[in-house]
C-alpha cells in the first residue's frame, strides 16, 4: 500500500476533571491527577479513497478523537500527520491550508449551521476564506454545491430553521465539500435522522466519494451503517482502540470480547435467525477512572489474571487484523473465544 493519507500516532487527549483548564505535560505525568482520559494513546491510519469507520459507545472518546485530528481540540500528546504535514504543529497559513483539505460534518446539522445566515452565506463562507471564488463565481459555485448534494437552487435563500433535518444535513455536507477537501470527518452524520433519511444521506456520501475520491473517517455508533459503508473499522473502548481490521473481519470474525458483545447486541430484523446473546454486565467505567491492566477487564467474561495487571497492546493476531487482548497474545492460539 502507498503511504497513508492520514496517520495518527499515539494520540492523547486528557481533560482536567476539575474545571476547563487545558492540561500540559506528558500523559504519564498527568495521569497522577486522575484526569479524564478521553483519548488514551490511539494509533491508526487512513488511506486515500478509503472510508475508515470508528465505532464505540458514547463516552469512548471517538468524537474527541475526531476533533483532535482536525485541531478543533488541542491534543495533549501524540502526532497527526496529513500527507507530509504535521497537523499538530501547523499554525497560521499552513493550518488554514490544512483546514481547506480536511473537513468535518457534525451529527446535529441543525446546530452546526449559523441560525441567522442563509444557506448561500453558509456555503459562500469557505469559498471566501480560502479565496476560491469571488463575485459571480461564488454564486455559480454555490448552485453547483447545492446540486451536488441534491438541493434546489431555491434553497440558497433559506435559513436553517426553514429546512428539514435531512436538508440541513445536506447543507452541512455541501459546506464541507466547498473547499474540495481530500478528507472529511463524518461525526455521526446519520444519527439524528429518521431511518428512511439515513440511507439517502449515506447514498449521497457514497456518491460524493465516487466522484471526488475523498477519504472519510466515519465516526458512528450505528454499526449497521458502518458495516455497509466502511472499508476498515476500528473499535474504541474507553479511549483506546481495542480492535482494528477490514470491515468484514471485524463483523464476521470479531476477536476482542468487547467487539463480540457490541455486535451481538444489535438486534437482527429476522425472527428466524437465532443468535447468541452476549450481555455485558453493568456500565462502562468512567474515563476519569480507567481500570488498571486491560481497560475492559471489569466487564470481560474471559478475564485472566494477567489482564488485571498488564495492559495488552494492539498486536496483529491475523494478517491485517489487530487486537488488544491477551487471548491472542500468542500467534498459535488462533481460535476465537466463542
Amino acid at each position: 500500500m502507498n503511504s497513508p493519507l492520514l496517520s495518527v500516532t499515539k494520540l492523547f487527549k486528557y481533560f482536567s476533571s476539575r474545571g476547563q483548564r487545558e492540561l500540559r505535560g506528558t500523559p504519564e505525568q498527568l495521569r497522577q491527577d486522575g484526569p479524564v482520559r478521553a483519548v488514551d494513546g490511539v494509533t491508526f491510519e487512513v488511506h486515500s479513497h478509503e472510508t475508515f469507520g470508528l465505532v464505540g459507545e458514547s463516552g469512548c472518546g471517538k468524537s474527541t478523537l475526531g476533533r483532535c485530528i482536525l485541531r478543533l481540540l488541542e491534543p495533549t500528546a501524540g502526532s497527526v500527520a496529513f500527507g507530509d504535514e504535521d497537523v499538530t504543529r501547523a499554525a497560521g497559513q499552513r493550518l488554514r491550508e490544512l483546514r481547506r483539505r480536511m473537513q468535518i460534518v457534525f451529527q446535529d446539522a441543525g446546530q452546526s449551521l449559523s441560525p441567522m445566515r442563509t444557506v448561500r452565506a453558509t456555503l459562500a463562507e469557505p469559498l471566501r476564506i480560502h479565496g476560491l471564488a469571488r463575485g459571480e463565481a461564488t454564486e455559480t459555485r454555490v448552485l453547483q454545491l447545492l446540486d451536488q448534494v441534491g438541493l434546489e437552487p431555491m434553497h440558497r435563500n433559506r435559513y436553517p430553521h426553514q429546512l428539514s433535518g435531512g436538508q440541513q444535513q445536506r447543507v452541512a455536507i455541501a459546506r464541507a465539500l466547498a473547499t474540495e477537501p481530500d478528507f472529511i470527518v463524518l461525526d455521526e452524520p446519520t444519527s439524528a435522522l429518521d431511518s428512511s433519511l439515513k440511507l439517502t444521506v449515506v447514498d449521497l456520501l457514497q456518491h460524493v466519494q465516487d466522484s471526488t475520491g475523498v477519504s472519510y473517517l466515519l465516526i458512528s455508533h450505528d454499526l449497521t451503517i458502518v458495516r455497509h459503508t466502511c472499508d476498515r473499522v476500528a473499535v474504541m473502548y474507553l479511549g483506546a482502540i481495542v480492535e482494528i481490521a477490514a470491515t468484514a473481519h471485524v463483523f464476521d470474525d470479531a476477536l476482542h470480547p468487547y467487539t463480540q458483545a457490541l455486535i451481538a447486541s444489535i438486534p437482527v430484523p429476522d425472527p428466524f435467525t437465532k443468535r447468541e446473546r452476549i450481555l455485558l454486565p453493568g456500565e462502562p467505567p468512567s474515563p476519569a477512572n480507567i481500570p488498571s491492566g486491560c481497560r475492559f477487564q471489569t466487564r470481560c467474561s474471559f478475564v485472566m489474571d494477567r489482564c488485571r495487571h498488564e495492559e495488552p497492546s494492539l498486536l496483529e493476531a491475523k494478517p491485517g487484523h489487530r487486537v488488544a487482548c491477551f487471548l491472542y497474545a500468542e500467534a498459535e492460539r488462533e481460535a476465537a473465544p466463542t
Binding site: S196, V202, R227, H228, F251, D252, V268, P269
Partner: peptide, 23 residues
C-alpha cells in the same frame, strides 16, 4: 420497510437495499 432495513449480520451491498420513496 423490511427490504430497506440493513442487517448487521449480512454483507449485502448498499445498492441492493430498498429505499422507500417519499415521506
Amino acid at each position: 420497510l423490511l427490504d430497506s432495513t440493513l442487517r448487521i449480520d449480512r454483507d449485502s451491498p448498499l445498492s441492493d437495499i430498498e429505499r422507500i420513496p417519499g415521506t
